[in-house]
Design a protein around this nucleic acid. Structure first.
Lengths: 228, 228
DNA sequence: ACCTGAACACCGTTCAAGT
DNA sequence: ACCTGAACACCGTTCAAGT
């Protein structure tokens, strides 16, 4: 956290590092850049990723990154997709019912993003990387195999997508700003006569996010399930 | 760019020319600041809002804003909530069924945000403003009145919220970056053997977003509807 | 109470140049 | 092919000061 302070000082100590010289940094590469970007984002949030800081952590000059990457946007794209990898369960999938399959993948999706909360706030502005496409393909295949009519398939996929994205974005934002949540609760308490129903149901105090995600997902799947 | 700016300047100076003071804009106020911030965001997107530019458009020094507002974050908060106002239909509500009520409010919510696409990318990091709370209260009241059990109420509200947020965030991001969408489609075409189901259902080519939103919402409401 | 300019400590990126 | 420093055109915000 308090790793690097003065840029000039750390740069100098790198240049004159003769005694403990052993670790000269490996050459730059897309992989190293993306991995370090993710580290930085995990540690300092979305505003903590800076081209200059990234280069610093990689032991290179700030401009060296631009040989590997077009611009900062690209770094964001790559960091986001790198976090969304999904390893399908190989053969257990056979024995799994379609609902179990879908629920598992979507829960994993959400959990993966919540492990890197910045990823949720990045989603709104990014395109579909290969890992997202892979998940959509799996979703599509599973629902289709479950008997969802072709006419309903895209709607079903987007509905589940929307649900996951919305849930993750919301959860991550509350996670990031406890004080905002507290402020909202306080404001709510102060003017609770305006929001009696919310107040009564304790909507903002309920913190069983995982359970709510699961239950709501079940409702949605109930609605989407093919009718026989 | 500089041309556009000077254009706005001259328009304002025309308007205030009638007053005796030669170059004084109306006094700063939170309302003016927020309204101008929304204009800027509409015109130039999220990166187009700059404290300096905002002050410039208001005809004031950059630092004058800080007397009215803590920091840039606050400007974002206020701009977001200002866009989410909802006027309940006064008495027609009586005759409306609960589904109609919910659908109307959520469609209006989505439409309002899509009129200001930056609002979607702002949502992940912001807290609940009064206008959002008002919508949640309405949702809560309507669902409760429709017979949704207290135990399911919060889950139902969050599910609908998630759905709207996810749909809006997604729609706005595709809206903002047509070339990204095109790139994704191209990449998809190139490696379509990896995503056969998506390819077949033309998931990424379907552009009836409004229809898909409505249909998926119906599925979700089917799942949420109280079972008699 | 309300507004201001100068200054500080940063940004992302272009460019010409080095190996 | 890969990396670099200097430079440019910006940022948000602190501060001491003006009315």
């Amino acid at each position: 956290m308090a790793g690097k302070r003065s840029g000039a000082q750390s740069k100098r100590s790198q240049r004159t590092r003769s005694a403990e010289q052993p670790r000269h940094d490996p050459a730059l590469s897309l992989e190293r850049i993306v991995a370090t970007a993710v580290e930085l984002l995990d540690a300092h949030g979305i505003d903590g990723l800076t081209m200059r800081r990234l280069a610093d952590h990689l032991g290179s000059g700030a401009m060296s990154l631009y040989w590997h990457v077009d611009n900062k946007e690209k770094v964001f794209d790559l960091a986001l997709d790198s976090v969304l990898e999904y390893r399908e369960l190989p053969e257990t999938a056979q024995s799994r019912d379609w609902r179990g399959e879908v629920v598992h993948m979507l829960q994993d999706w959400r959990a993966g993003m919540l492990r890197h909360p910045w990823s949720a706030s990045l989603l709104p502005r990014r395109a579909l990387g290969p890992n997202i496409l892979r998940r959509l393909e799996l979703l599509s295949r599973t629902l289709s195999g479950a008997g969802v009519a072709d006419a309903d398939l895209n709607v079903a996929i987007w509905s589940l997508w929307n649900y996951v994205i919305g849930a993750t974005v919301t959860r991550a934002s509350f996670d990031l700003s406890d004080e905002d949540m507290a402020a909202a609760q306080q404001r709510l308490a102060l003017v609770s006569e305006h929001y009696p129903t919310i107040e009564r149901s304790r909507l903002l105090l309920d913190d069983d996010w995982d359970g709510a995600f699961r239950k709501g997902l079940d409702f949605l799947l109930d609605g989407l399930a093919p009718k026989y």
